[in-house]
Amino acid sequence: MTLDVLYFAWLRERIGAPSERIETGAATVADLVAELSARGGPHAEAFANLAAVRVALDQELADFTAPLAGVREVAFFPPMTGG
């Protein structure tokens, strides 16, 4: 499936791009993270500490165990600091 993967805040800076379009067979968010981390370099660095990373699927907060079936857009970002 084709996924748009978005990065925000320090994840965007570390990875060096705000988004990328990827082809993946990952079944869950955790599978996708493993796939991205396996590239090494900035991706491995960005996902080194998952406790500091949040994920949204099609603009709704989700868990790392969530399935990716039917999802178009995955976003990774640090805990939010609005207000």
């Binding site: 925000f8 949204a56 640090p78 805990p79 600091t81 609005g82 207000g83």
Partner: peptide, 9 residues
């Protein structure tokens, strides 16, 4: 909104 709206400072 402090911890559920996607803003980063």
């Amino acid at each position: 909104l402090k911890s559920r709206a996607p803003f980063w400072k």
